[in-house]
Amino acid sequence: MKRRRGRGAGREGEGEFRRRSLSAAVQLAINNVTKERGVIFNSISQSDAINEAADLSKYTFHEALNPHMTSGAVGRYAFAKFGKKVAFLTADYAYGHEMVRGFLEVGKEFNIENLGDIRHPLGTTDFSTLLPRLQALKPDILCISNFGRDQQIALKQATDFGIKKSIQIIAPLLSHASRVAAGPQAFEGVVGGCSFYWGIEDKFASTKAFNDAFRKMYDGKLPTDYGALGYGGVRTVLEAVKGAGSVETNKVVAALEALKYDYYKGPQYYRKCDHQSVQSVLVIKSKSKDMKNESDVFEVLSTEEPNEKYLRTCEALGHKS
């Protein structure tokens, strides 16, 4: 989102806001530029690093969940239910490592046994040479800590290898688009986390209103998780501008920090120290049958309510208390 500066407006970056959904690396690169130029950036990509003191600036906001939150919510659900012996299949890059770190941290509460972490290069198209080793470890739970196409292929091939018969597969983040692209067979029974699922409209009036508006605008279609995040990322900044009565950056930042909002998924707010949106995390399971419509792809197993105790502490992130 970008609004041109009017003649006579304040310094560079005044009235200019960014909202972006790309990979974590691109998000961090954009953040480097926006913080240097004093432009408000509300990111909807996942990353733990963007909350840390080294990367954060007063202009950086993070509407998306981060790997610590999703791994934490999914881990707390899965480690209590499916067993303590855990193996990892991890994409060998920062986001993959952050997801594993999240699982291992929450795993301490449950005394999980880490049987091994097999790391694969980003963009792997064949997991057949990695899966026998993972099977041989005989874990109760296999944490697939990758995303997008890597996740789709890994889950498809794990299904082909019959891994799901004896091992519960979990993933920190399951996206609606990935589930649709890979199909019900590949994702069947996989438990994961997400920030938004249209099906929570029974619980929150804001979700119902958002879904209805989306249906009206897009021929009856329902919003996906990232569709909702995109909306949230823009709406919060617009509401902050309205609240501030100005597009002056510092005033908008203050308004965002003061914002208590419920625009599409229940109550949220930005934590003061790292501007992370404190919000609920949904633990979901992929459906393969009894689907009511083409968007009926997940079942919500549990909801971890918004609470700062599920976030890394401000001190751990390097912020002064």
Binding site: S128, P132, Q135, R149, Q152, Q157, D160, F161, G162, A177, V180, A181, A182, G183, P184, Q185, A186
Partner: peptide
């Protein structure tokens, strides 16, 4: 966005090849 492509039904699943299970497909 990609599309799923299901394995043909008769070729789904894994079979024991003596040293472990391997996908039939």
């Amino acid at each position: 966005t990609g599309y799923p492509f299901d394995t043909p039904e008769v070729l789904q699943g894994a079979v024991d090849i003596g040293v472990g299970y391997f996908p039939l497909y």
